[in-house]
């Protein structure tokens, strides 16, 4: 079989991804923002995204997979700690978390 053309792959990927977005639009017209169904679907969305972020931290693929789990969890702990200590400062927490993982990686490499 010949390799699929790049533009064809792009169109296929777009369609496969738009499917869920478009379906969301079509169904959303029937959901009241004050009803129980809306609350349930919001819970599902939050749970799914929390699961995704937790998965990226605990079981990453790619570059992050080369770092030890304890380093990633340590970086999250530092980020969370500073975030809540300094009145939910998002910038400080994020920068501290990233700095921690980079520092730990450099220390282990040396």
């Amino acid at each position: 079989m010949p390799d699929p053309q790049p533009w064809f792959i792009l169109v296929v990927a777009f369609a496969a991804n738009y499917l869920w977005r478009g379906l969301g639009v079509a169904i959303s017209g029937h959901i009241s923002p004050t009803g129980g169904l809306f609350k349930w679907v919001s819970c599902v969305a939050y749970a799914l995204l929390a699961g995704l972020i937790a998965r990226i931290i605990v079981l990453p693929v790619g570059l992050l997979a080369a770092t030890p789990l304890i380093d990633r969890l340590g970086a999250v702990a530092v980020a969370m700690g500073l975030f809540f200590l300094f009145r939910r400062n998002l910038v400080l927490g994020t920068v501290a978390g990233v700095a921690t993982i980079v520092a730990l990686t450099l220390i282990r490499a040396s």
Binding site: L49, I56, I57, L90, G97
Partner: peptide
């Protein structure tokens, strides 16, 4: 990416959202 969103989600105050985030983070992996 994961650090930023972990903090953004930690900042959610609505009870149903907090419960969903905690449950998802625990069973997700």
């Amino acid at each position: 990416n994961p650090i930023y969103f972990a903090l953004v989600f930690a900042d959610v105050r609505q009870r149903s959202g907090v419960l969903a985030l905690a449950a998802g983070a625990v069973i997700g992996p």
